[in-house]
Simulated scan of single mutants.
Amino acid sequence: MKWLKSLMLICLIPLLTGCWDKYELANTSIVTGMAVDKGESFKYKLTIETTEAREMSYQTASGLAPSTVSSLEGNNIGELTSKFNIMNATHPIYSHTRVLVLSEDIVEDGLLEFMDFFDRNREIRDDFAIVIARAGKAQDILKVTNMYKKSASLKLFTQLNTMQKDWGGAPDIKLNDYTRISNSEGQAPVLPAVQLIGDSKKGGNVENLKSEVPDSEVKVNSMGVLKNGKLAGYASLNEIRDMLFVQGKIKNAAITAKCENGEQNFEYRVTHSKTKVIAKEIKGIPEFYINIRTEGYLDGTQCLQKLRDLKAYEGFEKSIDNKMENEIRGLIQKTKQDFNADIFGLGELLRQQDYKNFKKYKDTWDDGYAKSKIHVSFNTEIKRSGLRKDRYIMK
């Protein structure tokens, strides 16, 4: 029996050990955002934002800076993430990173091989957003204080999610989405783009978050399209919304269209959207039939039609359908001529629905997309007119 007790004690020893890799909370700092620029002396310049927990809470805040921004240069991002104790006293924890900002120069030159580090590292989660900093440095995006969340990274992460859900103006691209699309055979990756508006030097001042009109703020204003790992160009906010309609990812959106007289406008609020795409090759040409159906309500009108007449709604619906079909066709033409990249993922749909014919485009889908025929049908159904029937002033 003694040998049995000894064996049980030996088996229990691994369960009684402490956390060999633990860090005391007082000796750690939470990284909420990272930015990558071109270095002056080395290949990359990595910037991290670490938050100060006491300043993040309104109950314990004392008016000091809510976060700290630090930068290091080097030739390897993985090495730089572990070297910040050169200037910081605490151990950085990267598992709570919410935003990765890439400078326009980095994306234009295709210097994105470091993305393999983020995808491979087990201490970094894959649910953070990736954005491009237009016309400026990526590090400056992390230096802009604000009233909401106080942290530049936390505010930008929430801003992107809200923009996508409320209006459809930002693609919901996290690290796992970027990796999947980059490795796909029938789709080109896209990334939301932001721009610093105002004085970048004043953006980091505590006074910036106390001001009613901040001296500096970060705006989501476009979307970058990547081709073969490099920046091919930008799409506007409306074009982002049109892309998300095709992909069936619109949750809510607002559409402004012309009245029958072609002068005044009316607004349509989309509450439900569903997209169905049929993909097949016909006589050697990939063809796609995109059918988008939306439901919603009238959000405001300057038109003189009386809304008690059902024919008025038919006119509104026809105006929206024509506008959106033309917009989406224009975006498709732009992606073919300017980008030569399938940002919609139509190639992936062809692979799923007609793999026999897709196989010949496996490594050359750009050529297949360039010659493809894409048919767009947009169908609107206005369910209600809001709290009133007719226009506020019928003149």
Score class of each variant (00 low, 15 high):
87 M>L: 11
392 Y>I: 13
223 M>T: 08
116 D>W: 12
312 A>R: 02
311 K>L: 08
249 K>R: 13
308 R>M: 15
11 C>Y: 12
109 D>N: 10
300 G>E: 13
81 T>F: 02
344 F>V: 09
33 G>E: 04
263 E>G: 15
284 G>V: 08
264 Q>N: 10
137 K>W: 02
300 G>T: 15
248 G>P: 04
22 K>N: 09
369 Y>Q: 07
146 N>H: 10
367 D>P: 10
99 V>P: 05
279 A>G: 03
343 I>F: 02
101 V>K: 05
78 G>D: 01
275 T>G: 00
30 I>Q: 08
294 T>G: 07
353 Q>D: 14
45 K>N: 15
175 L>F: 04
137 K>A: 04
72 L>R: 05
262 G>H: 06
395 K>S: 10
389 K>C: 12
149 K>H: 10
277 V>I: 08
341 A>K: 03
395 K>V: 13
172 D>E: 08
304 L>F: 09
53 A>N: 08
48 I>C: 06
82 S>E: 07
239 E>P: 13
254 A>M: 14
92 P>D: 02
16 L>H: 03
31 V>R: 08
282 I>Q: 14
370 A>K: 14
357 N>I: 12
376 V>H: 03
324 M>W: 02
75 N>I: 00
8 M>Q: 14
121 N>S: 10
207 E>T: 14
72 L>G: 05
223 M>N: 03
326 N>Y: 11
350 L>P: 03
105 D>M: 04
130 I>K: 03
203 G>L: 02
28 T>H: 01
357 N>H: 05
370 A>V: 11
11 C>L: 14
319 S>L: 00
99 V>D: 04
342 D>A: 05
360 K>W: 06
59 Q>I: 10
290 I>F: 05
41 S>K: 13
121 N>Y: 11
91 H>S: 10
350 L>S: 00
256 T>K: 14
97 T>G: 01
12 L>M: 06
71 S>W: 12
201 K>N: 12
278 I>M: 10
111 L>S: 10
265 N>W: 09
307 L>I: 06
43 K>Y: 11
66 P>W: 02
348 E>Y: 05
92 P>Q: 01
325 E>L: 05
276 K>L: 13
202 K>L: 00
298 L>Y: 03
119 D>M: 12
242 D>R: 06
180 R>Y: 04
372 S>N: 00
148 Y>N: 15
23 Y>D: 07
178 Y>E: 01
337 Q>G: 07
153 S>D: 01
27 N>M: 06
183 N>E: 11
150 K>I: 13
295 E>G: 11
224 G>F: 02
178 Y>T: 00
95 S>C: 14
2 K>E: 13
112 L>Y: 00
210 K>S: 05
251 K>S: 07
105 D>Y: 04
210 K>N: 07
265 N>P: 06
156 L>R: 01
154 L>N: 12
352 Q>P: 15
107 V>S: 14
30 I>P: 10
263 E>H: 08
204 G>R: 03
194 V>W: 01
356 K>P: 10
152 A>V: 00
101 V>M: 04
151 S>G: 14
120 R>D: 09
386 G>D: 07
359 K>W: 06
5 K>H: 15
152 A>K: 00
224 G>I: 02
71 S>M: 07
242 D>E: 12
267 E>W: 11
141 I>E: 01
54 R>Q: 15
155 K>P: 09
104 E>Y: 02
67 S>F: 13
13 I>F: 04
334 K>G: 05
360 K>N: 04
127 D>K: 05
19 C>M: 09
287 E>I: 03
14 P>R: 04
